[in-house]
């Protein structure tokens, strides 16, 4: 954050139009290198659509976005090589063991055998997974799965990691441990782009944007947003902005 003004995501007028409605209506914002950026919004506000465009798996119908130095439209492969992605819905293969998943994703990300071996050992030590390295991922509690998925998304040392509701349904202690992992990664200089429905987690972000009905209605530090809306919590900010969209 100190060399703050290096922008790692630059979005200008990004738009996605489907047949009958516009899911994302010309949004513009940027994310600084090393920042934890919270991308909030109600269900159906266009968050997922916007995120899909940023990670290069959905084409915009207007505007531009540059992610990690690459244009999402013309260089989507380069974008993918420089980002990590983890969502609650898809994280890892349940039928593979912890170790097999790490090896598999390491291979997908193009790491050498030697790198994979080193990374696997590092990861298992760091997350204290020694006892369960040979356990199938499907048999792990959700919280462990999510921590592991986060680390796997970082295997290829991406510049940015996108986290789509990483903590949904996770118990309160594990949820906090997960955020400690996020902090630690951000300290190393990795940029974190995260969505969440837990408003206490919005407070842990450096800056937060709130999407309503396809547009970004507010974007600032949690502190300034609370001042701007004259409320005491991010939950109240959210409720004030996002009431009744559907």
């Amino acid at each position: 954050m100190e060399n703050a003004q290096e922008k790692i995501i630059i979005v200008e007028n990004l738009t996605k139009q489907f047949d009958h409605f516009t899911a994302v209506k010309g949004i513009s914002f940027h994310v600084n290198k090393g920042e934890i950026f919270g991308f909030l919004g109600a269900n159906g506000a266009g968050k997922t659509t916007a995120m899909k465009m940023l990670i290069g798996i959905s084409n915009s119908t207007g505007g531009t976005a540059n992610v990690a130095g690459f244009d999402v439209h013309t260089q989507s492969e380069e974008v993918k090589q420089n980002i990590g992605y983890m969502s609650q819905k898809f994280s890892m293969y349940d039928d593979l063991t912890v170790q097999e998943n790490i090896t598999f994703f390491g291979g997908i990300y193009g790491l050498s055998r030697k790198q994979i071996k080193t990374k696997t050992e590092e990861l298992i030590a760091e997350l204290q997974l020694g006892n369960i390295a040979k356990t199938k991922v499907g048999d792990l509690p959700l919280g462990w799965k999510q921590k592991l998925a986060f680390s796997v998304a970082l295997l290829h040392e991406p510049k940015i990691v996108f986290l789509d509701e990483p903590t949904g349904g996770v118990d309160p202690i594990t949820r906090r441990q997960f955020w400690e992992l996020i902090y630690a990664e951000a300290h190393k200089g990795t940029t974190i782009f995260v969505t969440t429905h837990y408003m206490d987690e919005a407070e842990y972000c450096n800056r937060v944007s709130i999407m309503v009905d396809g547009v970004i209605e507010a974007l600032d530090t949690p502190k300034k947003l609370k001042e701007q809306f004259q409320v005491n919590s991010m939950n109240e900010v959210f409720l004030k902005l996002a009431r009744n969209i559907e």
Partner: peptide, 12 residues
């Protein structure tokens, strides 16, 4: 878990 993954407004 009717509200898991549901935003704060819809939860309310």
């Amino acid at each position: 878990e009717p509200t898991t993954g549901v935003d704060p407004v819809s939860r309310k």
